[in-house]
Design a protein around this nucleic acid. Structure first.
Ligand SMILES: [Mn+2]
Ligand SMILES: [Mn+2]
Ligand SMILES: [Zn+2]
Ligand SMILES: [Zn+2]
Lengths: 143, 143
DNA sequence: ATAGTCTTTGAGACTCATTCTCAATTATTA
DNA sequence: TAATAATTGAGAATGAGTCTCAAAGACTAT
């Protein structure tokens, strides 16, 4: 899969920006896995291969990835923003265990349909859903 | 309405804590309105009447109010946590306008039912729902 | 009342994720 | 190659939230 590259490239051009080496490295690393990530985790991953990408550039590139529709800020955990892919992934909701931090991802079509209807009633245009719940997972309950 | 007092009082006793003057002022101010609030807004409200409640005590009291079930952290906006009443308020979801910051509150029973079912399938115990969407409100779209 | 024992408080120092600044570097165009 | 604009890394700055600590308050037992 290499379509993220094209999407991001087009986005950058449309904004008069350039697909530089650091931005490419960040993009590739972000899409090398399919897990949720925060800036520190991403920084550590990148640093394994490339000693020349700074935190500042990561912080600057993430909003570009978000704005281009490739990722979204999906959670806040331990005072850190966490991100996940939107490009190439079905939308889903999160069940977050408050004991162990486990995240269960679940299809969300039904809730989205309902939200869409509610939004229509209020003349509201939804751009992004945010659905989930916090609680206790099976493993943590049984002990 | 003064039942928040009783609820909070019972909670504090059950934890071996005391309903002190600053805690009482914070409680009363929190329940003097029904809007979402952040710490700075709450601090300013309190300071109009009482010059002797510190930010530290507000930050220390909010987790107690949350834990006692009176309020919850419901939004994060402009890098600040925002809270709202849970006690005496029906659960609802938020449609947040990304242009003007307007928050539309909507009944949420249907989405909760669906979430409950999904949670059951995954053996997950929901403690708190978090449902909403971001987008553009009617007023902001028409201009 | 008084002393002893906790809890709580305000003030301000501190932490740490995120943002900003700026001089040096890079990409692109002329 | 020179000019121009975008981008970068390093580290300083910001600011919400947390922590420390000595002083103040609440409560209990004398
Ligand atoms: Mn996810
Ligand atoms: Mn609300
Ligand atoms: Zn768990
Ligand atoms: Zn609006």
């Amino acid at each position: 899969m290499g379509n993220e590259n094209r999407v991001f490239g087009k986005y950058l051009i449309s904004k008069g920006l350039k697909l530089t080496k650091p931005r490419k490295i960040i993009l590739d690393t972000v899409f090398a896995t399919h897990k949720h990530f925060n800036v520190d985790e991403l920084y550590d991953l990148i640093r394994k291969k490339h000693k020349d990408v700074s935190r500042a550039t990561i912080y600057r590139t993430i909003p570009l990835l978000v704005d281009s529709g490739l990722i979204k800020q999906s959670l806040r955990c331990l005072a850190k923003d966490h991100y996940e892919h939107t490009y190439g992934h079905d939308r889903h909701l999160h069940l977050i265990c408050e004991k162990c931090g486990k995240i269960i991802e679940v299809e969300s079509r039904e809730t989205e349909n309902i939200l869409n209807e509610l939004a229509k009633k209020h003349n509201f245009n939804i751009r992004e859903f945010n659905v989930g719940a916090k609680g206790i997972c099976k493993k943590c309950r049984n002990k």
